[in-house]
Design a protein around this nucleic acid. Structure first.
Length: 470
DNA sequence: ATACATACC
DNA sequence: GACTGGTATGTAT
């Protein structure tokens, strides 16, 4: 057994992380990820991760893609240098106009909430095996961890971290196999409750729900405080907009009532799921509610407020990475000159730059988000959004054996076809996705004249592009 | 239409 | 030795 030094968290003194070198950079996302505790021993953690990652094909691939991103960012910077005074001025003018227009239309009459379970999979497993409660637990396997409980997080174990690294960080780490059927059942219990408050609630994933509470809050205000969600059969039939809104229930009043209601929802969910906790965000739209849901995690809730001042003072200091849609790459592209990640206020103050660098759509999107506006202002396109794609993928041992690859493809197509049949879905474009042992991802697709769904059709379509090229 | 990148959980 | 799987969307050609 390799006797790797464990960071030993609970008693461990906050060793000031020797801000690790280059090799660490690529995977430093793990030790940094949100949701973690204060980083005790981060230096140690990074060291172990770096050690295990160096010379792996995966790390090589990450470094390569990192370099590519750096090149792109450098190109953007050049582009900015070369831009002339006129272009800059007109970009600034456009931004100023947009900001004014957006501010003029800030609304205070809507209330959204995002509710998600804390360390969902792990919480379910620990609920069912209470002896795990004070142990470090990871749901997943040696290949990949999907959720870690808070005890494990103190050792630096994170979601989306490969299991063998988790194990090196914490040798007592208990692995539990995921049981998706069970999580789906639990999620359904919660969703039934959510629907009492918003029949049109949507699910972001198994453990995350988006609720527009506006109608419910008005109903509450009208009918007087009382408990319960109002027997759903009662007065919320399909009519839609019909609710009279006599009360001027806006802004902070909306938020105050929403706080109570969300507290009630979370208590009911906890009760109905035998103790599972949730965190929630409340705000004037889903974007803000979503960001706010991260603030009081675990087992808490936070409301952004409705006024421009409240919203901006909430958003301004946040790292841009907290904004949904801004990932590793955009964070880097918008980083400050000294390389440090920008805060949302800098996104805003440099909005004109973004307009010069990105497509108008991307620039708009960034600007809207940095002002706390929901993307696209989508008023729900009537019908429930139809599914755009369906897929089935598996990672397996590298092989060059064509028969073996063919058999794998056959199995994948068969299970995909089964799933499509069950959900009554078909599709016109079939994409074959391949991953090499170097972690290079390739896709090849071909579109049919009419939708297909049968296993044989999928398989035939999948190999079609291969026979032509390569 | 195709290929690939990015992002989220 | 081991670094997921499912879905959506953006960008370039």
């Amino acid at each position: 057994m390799p006797r790797s030094p464990s960071p030993s968290p609970p008693a461990g003194q906050p060793s000031t992380a020797s801000d690790a070198g280059d090799a660490v950079k690529a995977i430093y996302v793990f030790a940094n990820e949100k949701g973690g505790m204060t980083d005790i021993n981060r230096g140690k953690i990074n060291e172990i991760i770096a050690q295990l990652s160096q010379s792996s094909a995966y790390t090589a691939k990450l470094l390569k893609s990192d370099r590519r991103v750096d090149e792109t960012v450098a190109l953007l910077q050049q582009k900015l240098q070369r831009s002339d005074e006129g272009a800059r001025r007109s970009a600034a003018a456009v931004v100023a106009r947009q900001v004014a227009a957006l501010e003029a239309s800030r609304r205070a009459d809507r209330c959204c909430a995002v509710i998600d379970f804390d360390m969902f999979y792990a919480a379910v497993e620990i609920r069912d095996r209470p002896e795990l409660a004070d142990k470090p637990v990871a749901v997943g396997g040696i290949g990949m961890i999907s959720t870690a409980n808070y005890v494990a997080r103190r050792w630096g174990v994170r979601s989306a971290m490969p299991g063998f690294i988790g194990q090196a960080l914490c040798r007592q780490l208990v692995f539990v196999r995921p049981d998706f059927a069970k999580y789906t059942a639990v999620a359904e219990v919660a969703r039934a409750i959510f629907r009492e408050y918003d029949p049109k609630m949507t699910a972001g994933s198994l453990d995350e729900a988006y609720l527009d509470l506006t109608d419910h809050l008005h109903k509450r205000a009208r009918d007087g405080g009382g408990g319960g969600a109002g027997d759903d059969s009662g007065d919320c039939d399909g009519g839609g907009e019909g609710e009279r809104r006599g009360t001027a229930l806006t802004g902070e009043a909306l938020g105050e009532l929403a706080g109570e209601v969300v507290g009630e929802i979370r208590a009911r969910v906890k009760e109905a799921t035998r103790g599972l906790t949730t965190s929630a965000g409340i705000g004037p739209n889903f974007l803000l509610a979503k960001i706010a849901a991260d603030v009081r995690k675990p087992d808490g809730q936070f409301c952004t407020g409705w006024s421009r001042e409240a919203v901006l003072s909430f958003l301004a200091p946040l790292p841009v990475r907290k904004v949904p849609g801004v990932g590793r790459v955009m964070e880097k592209a918008r980083a400050r000159k000294d390389g440090a990640a920008s805060a949302v206020c800098e996104l805003l103050s440099r909005a004109a730059e973004a307009r010069l660098l990105f497509t108008p759509g991307s620039a708009d999107s960034l600007l809207r988000k940095s002002l706390g506006w929901e993307e696209g202002g989508r008023e729900e396109a009537a019908g429930e959004a139809l599914q755009k794609g369906i897929s089935c993928e598996r990672t397996f041992r590298p092989t060059g054996d064509e028969a073996e690859l063919g058999e794998t493809l056959r199995r994948l197509c068969a299970s995909l076809a089964e799933e499509m049949a069950a959900r009554q879905l078909r599709g016109r474009t079939v994409t074959l996705k391949m991953k090499t042992s170097d972690f290079d991802l390739l896709t090849r697709d071909s579109s049919a004249a009419r939708p297909v769904g049968a296993a044989e059709e999928l398989q035939a379509r999948a190999v079609m592009p291969l026979t032509v090229a390569d």
